Amino acid sequence: MLTLIRTRGPLGGTGRAGRLRRAAAVALAVAAAVPLATSCAAGTSVLDKDSLVIGVKKDQPGLGNLVSGRYEGFDVDVATYVAAKLGKQARFVPAPSSQREKLLMDGAVDLIFASYSITPERKTKVAFGGPYYVAHQDTLVRTGQREINNVRDLRGRKLCQVTGSNSWKRVKEERKIPVVLVPSASYSDCMADLRSGKVDAVSTDDLILAGYATAGTIIVNAPFSDERYGVGIRSGDIDGCEAVNKAITEMYQDGTAKKLLQKWFAKSGLALNFSVPQFEGCG
């Protein structure tokens, strides 16, 4: 709170000069106070919270899925572990791909564990702890589509495009493969479109595909990128980010990461990595 004190001397006087001096002093005091208030607001850390609101997916089997009113999956289990290491209770809310940055920037969530790949573009808006796993982009097709053996075979075919996801960009923009994009709101909708024949393929992280793969679909097992799953956190929370990274390190060191990966993906046939990923850095 800013307190003004009447003084005599240089700032005193009843004439015009005195009034101008007093006005200038007040303006300087207000200007000095504003950065302090802004700094305090920007410095709010997840470590200062009594409990954490964590954004996860609600429709990605194996990663984040809402089943009978409860969230389950690898991302949810990792988030629960990290929150416990921070000494916090966790409450989960849905974080669709198209809303992840906004949820963090608006303060609607404290952390995001939602197959959230770290990219330069996203780092201009939010910060990242981790990664807590490095997945690889692959392609899912209908069983019997033997002519599709890798991402290059998608030329001229219909590819599902999820709003807010970067996966389609790695196919059409980065690798210049001329696919026909078919917009969709989520990967669960993509799967329905794949089964119905509306699209020919779904291409995204192999852990996401592993959760969706069912009878009638198959992963081509031709990975072509590294997808670093980061913990979304508000920019400037360096202490919180470093605490998250410490928790992730402990998760790999005590064997929890291996148990969780095997719990959710052992049956997928994917080659899983049980080593601590190289962290992004919190500075």
Rank of each mutant, 00 (worst) to 15 (best):
A32K: 06
T38E: 12
L36H: 10
C40Q: 07
A23H: 10
R16P: 07
V26N: 14
G18W: 01
T7H: 00
A25Y: 00
L11M: 05
A32E: 14
L36T: 11
V26M: 13
L20Q: 15
R6C: 01
I5W: 01
R19G: 12
R16W: 03
T14D: 06
A17G: 11
G13F: 12
L36V: 11
P10A: 04
G18L: 07
L20A: 15
S39T: 13
R21F: 09
A24N: 12
T7A: 00
R19N: 12
P35N: 09
T38K: 07
L36W: 11
A24K: 11
L28H: 08
A27K: 06
A31E: 13
A27E: 05
L11S: 00
L11I: 02
R19W: 04
R19D: 09
A33Q: 13
P35Y: 10
L20M: 09
A31V: 08
A33K: 02
R19V: 03
R8W: 08
T38V: 09
G12H: 01
L11V: 06
V30M: 12
V34G: 02
T14E: 12
T14H: 04
A25N: 05
V26D: 05
R16H: 09
R6W: 02
G9K: 03
R19T: 07
A31R: 07
A23P: 15
A29K: 07
A27I: 03
V34K: 08
R21P: 14
R19C: 04
P10I: 01
S39V: 05
V30S: 10
L11T: 00
C40E: 04
S39M: 06
P10S: 02
G15W: 01
L11H: 00
G9Q: 03
A31Y: 10
A32M: 10
L20V: 11
R21Q: 14
R8E: 15
A29Y: 13
L20Y: 10
A27Y: 14
A23K: 15
A33M: 05
R22S: 15
L4A: 05
P35H: 07
A23S: 14
A27S: 09
V30W: 14
V30E: 13
A29S: 14
V34D: 12
A29P: 06
A25Q: 08
V34E: 14
T14G: 08
L28V: 07
R19Q: 04
A29E: 12
I5C: 01
A31M: 10
T7W: 00
T7F: 00
T38D: 08
I5P: 00
A32N: 10
A25V: 00
P35G: 11
G15C: 01
P10R: 03
V30I: 14
R16D: 11
G15T: 10
V26I: 12
A17E: 15
R6Q: 14
L11C: 01
G12N: 03
A32Y: 15
